[in-house]
Amino acid sequence: MLVINAFTTNAVLFASLLLVIGVPVLYMTQADPSDRRNGNIKRIEILGGVWFHLVLIQAIVGEYVTHQTFGL
């Protein structure tokens, strides 16, 4: 159980690292910053969506592991 929780926690941390480094890089490398629908903006939105879902999954798995481990 704790391995599953550790795996999901590490996935969230890795996705957060990608967002912290990737978002500024993608913004700086845009050809036209005024274009709101270019490819870099779409990539940032996709990374944000993946991160959000990983956080939800980690919360569900963490809650399940807590209930299994401590019998709450």
Rank of each mutant, 00 (worst) to 15 (best):
M1P: 07
M1V: 11
M1A: 12
L2H: 10
V3P: 02
V3N: 10
I4Q: 14
A6D: 09
A6V: 03
F7Q: 14
F7A: 15
F7R: 15
F7N: 13
F7H: 09
T8N: 10
T8S: 14
T9F: 14
T9K: 11
N10D: 10
N10W: 05
N10G: 13
A11S: 09
A11Y: 06
A11C: 09
A11I: 06
V12K: 10
V12N: 04
V12L: 08
L13W: 02
L13Y: 01
L13E: 12
L13F: 01
F14A: 15
F14S: 15
A15F: 01
A15P: 00
L17N: 04
L17C: 07
L17H: 05
L17R: 02
L18C: 08
L18K: 02
L18T: 05
L19A: 13
L19G: 09
L19Y: 13
L19E: 04
L19K: 07
V20G: 00
V20A: 05
V20N: 00
I21S: 03
G22K: 02
G22W: 03
V23K: 03
V23H: 03
P24Q: 06
P24D: 04
V25Y: 05
V25A: 14
V25I: 15
V25Q: 04
L26M: 13
L26V: 03
Y27A: 09
Y27S: 11
M28S: 14
M28P: 00
M28L: 13
M28F: 11
T29Y: 03
T29N: 10
T29A: 12
T29H: 03
T29K: 12
Q30N: 00
Q30G: 01
Q30W: 01
Q30R: 15
A31L: 11
D32I: 06
D32N: 15
D32W: 03
P33G: 04
P33V: 08
P33C: 02
P33Y: 06
S34V: 04
D35L: 07
D35T: 01
D35A: 06
D35K: 05
R36N: 07
R36A: 08
R37L: 12
N38G: 10
N38L: 00
G39I: 06
G39E: 07
N40K: 06
N40S: 12
N40H: 10
N40E: 12
I41R: 11
I41G: 00
I41K: 07
K42W: 09
K42P: 00
K42L: 08
K42D: 03
K42I: 12
R43N: 10
R43K: 14
I44T: 11
E45W: 08
I46H: 05
I46E: 07
I46W: 02
L47E: 01
L47N: 07
L47A: 05
G48I: 01
G48R: 05
G49D: 05
G49F: 04
G49V: 00
V50I: 15
V50R: 02
V50Y: 09
V50F: 10
V50Q: 04
W51D: 08
W51L: 15
W51Y: 12
W51K: 09
F52H: 05
F52C: 10
F52M: 13
H53E: 07
H53C: 11
H53Q: 14
H53T: 10
L54E: 04
L54G: 03
L54R: 06
L54A: 01
V55P: 00
V55M: 10
V55L: 09
V55T: 05
V55D: 00
L56I: 13
L56P: 00
Q58R: 13
A59N: 11
A59S: 14
A59F: 14
